[in-house]
């Protein structure tokens, strides 16, 4: 039994301080093994984005521990994140955006550019190296965001609803691309989403969080073999798994609503 790449124990995050603090997340235990693709789904406001932020050091646990094995190994970039919005810098070109993580961690200019260039090609952005994001479509902008995170070769890739603002067709295209990337790189991914379909197509495991403060309600293995395509959606097991998780989620949406109504009343 190897050590998990991500080891979360009794994690709690409270926003604000003292008695006026709001419980955002937890207590929560979660292990993610190396190379595993784990999706975290949950109703709005359940703290799943908070979990993503903790994993990349943008938020601090209020209690409990989050251990990245990469940190222990002394990795240069234990984790990197892809956001839904404001992901890439509009004042930097495509190449500069992708090279950003390398540049700020002290990789020399020529090498950073060379590595960024290889990601430009890999993500199908050839010819747009010197374009600014404003000249790119939403899908291409998000490819830049993914490339920027992957260029630093993070041990854990965190994705916080990365396809949330794309139209359905484009989302499918990017999901297929991500399946291909994961197939090639075998990287550890924690993927935050509110779409069960996205989660089931992409993941090895789907973790369902409760309404705020998010706790783990279910942790299901996704049995479909890899390499995968979007066609797993047609598998009869896909439908039943989705149905099963949907019922769990559905109950939480109602819980959240009645809690809000109580608070309002």
């Amino acid at each position: 039994m190897s050590e998990p790449e991500v080891r979360i124990r009794d994690l709690r995050v409270v926003y604000g301080d003292g008695r006026s603090g709001v419980d955002a997340l937890g207590p929560l235990d979660l292990d993610v093994m190396r190379g595993q693709f784990v999706s975290v789904v949950g109703p709005s406001g359940c703290g799943k984005s908070t979990l993503a932020r903790v994993l990349v050091g943008l938020a601090e646990p209020s209690a409990g521990s989050v251990v990245l094995a990469a940190n222990e190994r002394g990795s240069a970039m234990p984790s990197a994140i892809v956001f839904q919005d404001h992901a890439i810098f509009p004042w930097k070109t495509v190449l500069q955006n992708i090279a950003f993580g390398l540049t700020v961690s002290g990789v020399d200019h020529a090498q950073a550019n060379a590595r960024a260039r290889s990601w430009v090609h890999r993500m199908g952005l050839t010819g747009f190296e010197d374009s600014y994001p404003s000249a790119l479509s939403g899908g291409m902008q998000q490819r830049v965001g993914v490339a920027r995170a992957l260029a630093v070769e993070p041990d854990v890739l965190v994705m916080d609803e990365p396809f949330g603002s794309l139209d359905a067709l484009l989302r499918d295209v990017l999901i297929e691309e991500l399946l291909g990337l994961h197939q090639d790189l075998r990287c550890t991914v924690v993927f935050i989403t509110h779409s069960l379909e996205e989660a089931l197509v992409l993941s090895d495991r789907v973790v369902v969080l409760s309404a705020r403060p998010g706790r783990i309600l279910a942790d299901r293995a996704v049995p479909f073999p890899r390499p995968r395509t979007l066609e797993v959606r047609d598998d009869p097991d896909f439908g039943s798994l989705r149905q099963d998780l949907w019922h769990l989620l559905r109950s939480q949406v109602d819980v959240g609503r009645s809690a809000d109504e109580r608070a309002a009343g």
Partner: peptide, 13 residues
């Protein structure tokens, strides 16, 4: 927008 700063900070700038 906070997102820009977060994006930078996620790379431990």
């Amino acid at each position: 927008p906070r997102g820009y700063r977060d994006a930078a900070r996620s790379f431990r700038v």
